[in-house]
């Protein structure tokens, strides 16, 4: 067993140290978006959160397509932790609620409770067409039709699902906005 481990893992790890990283260059968030978010931050007179954000993801009715792309942001190619962005397990540790789905009636209370547990100041991001306005599920008896039906939303990231690059761009815009204010 030890032999196999040496044979297979060590050389690969060593090679990884000298080969170029798999990670992509960071996306640049559009200036207007950053300005708009900065204005929002000031309007709300929120204290700055610093150059790091803890993200709590909440699925409020997604088809799980959005979750796949949010998870992909954590892979080595997008590597969101290099920007000081990380996912946390509890809303009590979070600066950002990253919410997906058309907001089903069955998830409304859970989302509100999660938001209540999240300390201020916080950002609420609605990711995916469903979260923006209910998307394809608009008008169903079972959905509220977007996250804004329950919570004030700071940033909308449309797409079905948004790509990891688009999601990352949105997260970086939040960082820029609070860093430059």
């Amino acid at each position: 067993m030890r032999e196999g481990w040496r044979r297979l893992l060590w050389p690969r790890l060593a090679r990884a140290l000298v080969s170029p990283p798999l990670t992509d260059a960071p996306p640049v968030p559009p200036e207007e978006l950053v300005q708009a978010l900065m204005a929002r931050l000031e309007a709300a007179a929120q204290a700055r959160l610093g150059r790091s954000l803890a993200i709590r993801q909440v699925d409020a009715g997604s088809c799980n397509g959005c979750e796949l792309e949010i998870s992909a942001m954590q892979n080595v190619v997008y590597d969101l932790e290099r920007f000081g962005l990380r996912f946390v397990a509890s809303p009590r540790h979070a600066d950002v609620l990253l919410v997906t789905g058309p907001l089903t009636r069955n998830m409304r209370e859970a989302l509100l409770r999660t938001a209540e547990c999240t300390p201020e100041p916080k950002w609420v991001v609605a990711a995916g067409d469903c979260a923006v306005d209910g998307g394809i599920f608009k008008g169903s008896y079972a959905v509220e039709g977007g996250i804004e039906a329950a919570l004030p939303v700071d940033l909308l990231i449309p797409g079905c699902p948004p790509t990891p690059a688009q999601l990352l761009e949105g997260m970086l815009a939040l960082l820029e906005a609070q860093g430059g204010g």
């Binding site: 699925d59 009715g61 997604s62 089903t104 998830m107 599920f137 169903s140 079972a142 959905v143």
Partner: peptide, 11 residues
């Protein structure tokens, strides 16, 4: 379960 019920069939 059931938290994600979106009313697929009805739609």
């Amino acid at each position: 379960l059931g938290y994600l019920h979106k009313g697929h069939i009805g739609l």
